[in-house]
């Protein structure tokens, strides 16, 4: 498996244009809200999470990663009727973690991206679960098979999303 330790000098750092930085997360949130109406099974995916991980691992900047994750999460929260901050906190943690990991690991190949997506999907779900249950008091049901299936499905889709993001990222 091609997760290789890479020195800070060896890793490539990318950036995204302003239109891409604004429109891609917006499109992800939009599609996440729209597609499940036509294809209910799509609700197991979390496109905004995949975009958060993709941006964070490409930029390799923890500050940018956590802010991007936080903003995407808050926007996602705004479309639900739950208190704003549940997705915000979860994606802030994921954005920070993914960008920090991106500094240390080479995440340019599909295998590494697959594993990273599964890992951060699990982190996201755990953080969300803890906050929703502990802080907000929501009734939450945790199902291991469901989470595992969702994690794999998101990882597969994540590999495709990262390939699309590769087309719009620019080398610094």
């Amino acid at each position: 498996m091609a997760i290789t330790y890479t020195s800070g000098e060896q890793v490539e750092v990318y950036r995204f244009s302003i239109p891409a930085t604004v429109l891609i997360p917006l499109a992800a949130v939009f599609l996440q809200a729209f597609i499940p109406l036509r294809f209910p099974f799509f609700v197991i995916f979390d496109l905004p999470l995949l975009v958060t991980i993709g941006f964070a691992t490409a930029r390799r900047n923890p500050l940018a990663g956590l802010l991007t994750g936080g903003l995407i999460g808050i926007m996602q929260d705004a479309l639900t009727h739950q208190p704003i901050g549940l997705y915000g906190i979860s994606k802030t943690v994921v954005g920070f973690g993914a960008s920090s990991l991106g500094i240390k690991l080479d995440v340019e190949n599909a295998g590494a991206r697959f594993l990273i997506t599964i890992f951060f999907f699990a982190v996201h779900e755990v953080v969300y679960f803890l906050i929703a249950r502990g802080l907000v008091g929501l009734r939450m049901a945790w199902s291991w098979p469901h989470e595992l299936l969702s994690g794999i499905a998101n990882a597969v889709l994540g590999v495709l999303v990262f390939m699309l993001l590769d087309r719009v990222k620019q080398r610094t």
Binding site: Q32, A33, V43, I44, L79
Partner: peptide, 15 residues
């Protein structure tokens, strides 16, 4: 007309 949803399994609402 239903034009959108929340996109979350934990928030079952539509717009």
């Amino acid at each position: 007309q239903v034009i959108g949803g929340s996109g979350s399994e934990l928030s079952r609402s539509v717009f």
